[in-house]
């Protein structure tokens, strides 16, 4: 499965990465992380609108059934995105991409995942979730000797209501708040609320979007370490939930489970604000492979 090379440096083999990535894909689509389950249970307890509460009940029943039967909780198993943090001392980095692609192909067949990679010009579905830039891999080189892999299967319904605004610096934070609220209300029932909202500010169009989406990897219910951003997140969350859109847009108290904000410094002329919307099935799974070949699953209990 793995071998240790030289002075304790991890030599990643395609086989090990593929095995771990397959497990992550399976975990992600069949079982939500505990923080997401907790947030949905809390929403159910607090809901007073009967139609909204019935929707949350169906969601909770469905999650339980999916876990028990090891079936995908939602038929939209998403476009597959990986976030890879590779220790700079790792050897065999060049094997990771093909191993991740193999894992996706295998998971499509065996979990199974819905084939979701379509050529935008011929409209042909590749049938195996592989395509140009799919799965998408975000690379980060970090100091050390371990490899962390996160999978984010991103559903299409919620992605379709994600939005970018290139605001003027004059609009600033006030414009940001308005845009986030407007995006959530305009999305209404479409993204399968209660949603998780990732907000990225600054950088540029692409940077803001990347930050917004990476926010979806953070555990729900954990306040932002920056107290000012934590305050902003709470303010936006309360605002969104006073809209009354509610679970599945059929009315109720919980429209959004959590809002996460991140930022980059901006160009003096620009104030980009990106909003990424994630459905209630806030799926993610992470694992870390250590230099001794030990694998630690970070988001799920694996026995």
């Amino acid at each position: 499965m793995f071998s240790v090379h030289g002075a304790g440096n991890l030599l990643v083999t395609g086989e090990l990465v593929e095995t771990v990535a397959f497990k992550l894909l399976q975990l992600a689509v069949t079982e939500l992380p505990q923080d997401v389950k907790d947030a949905l249970h809390k929403a159910y307890r607090q809901e007073t609108n009967q139609v909204g509460k019935a929707q949350l009940k169906a969601i909770l029943d469905n999650i339980e059934l999916a876990e028990k039967t090891c079936s995908p909780m939602c038929q939209d198993t998403g476009i597959i995105i990986f976030y890879v943090k590779a220790g700079s001392q790792i050897q065999g980095l060049d094997q990771i991409e093909s191993a991740l692609r193999n894992a996706v192909e295998k998971a499509t067949c065996e979990v199974p995942l819905r084939p979701n990679a379509v050529d935008p010009f011929t409209q042909q579905n590749s049938g195996n979730n592989l395509g140009r830039h799919v799965p998408y891999i975000h690379w980060e080189i970090v100091p050390g000797n371990s490899l962390e892999i996160t999978v984010l299967p991103k559903g299409g319904g919620s992605e379709n209501v994600s939005a970018l605004a290139m605001l003027t610096p004059g609009q600033g934070v006030s414009g940001l708040k308005r845009f986030v609220l407007d995006t959530i209300i305009a999305a209404g029932a479409k993204p399968c609320p209660p949603t998780v909202i990732g907000v990225g500010v600054g950088g540029g169009a692409d940077i803001a979007m990347n930050l917004a989406k990476a926010n979806l990897l953070k555990p729900l219910g954990e306040p932002n370490p920056d107290p000012e951003l934590a305050k902003l997140e709470q303010e936006l969350l309360q605002a969104a939930n006073s809209s009354g859109i509610g679970p599945m847009g059929l009315g109720g108290k919980t429209t959004v489970l959590d809002i996460k904000v991140d930022y980059a410094h901006r160009h003096p002329a620009s104030y980009p604000v990106a909003v990424v919307v994630q459905c209630w099935a806030a799926r993610r799974a992470s694992a870390k492979i250590y230099s001794d070949g030990k694998v630690e699953y970070l988001t799920h209990k694996v026995v």
Partner: peptide, 29 residues
């Protein structure tokens, strides 16, 4: 309206696939 994403609950109600048409559109379509 059926609860969005409640895919396993929905699948549980399916007793049989009677047929599948227009498979050239891909599995979802």
């Amino acid at each position: 309206a059926f609860t969005g994403g409640a895919a396993v609950l929905a699948a549980k109600a399916v007793k049989q696939v009677k047929s599948v048409e227009w498979t050239d559109l891909g599995m979802p379509e």
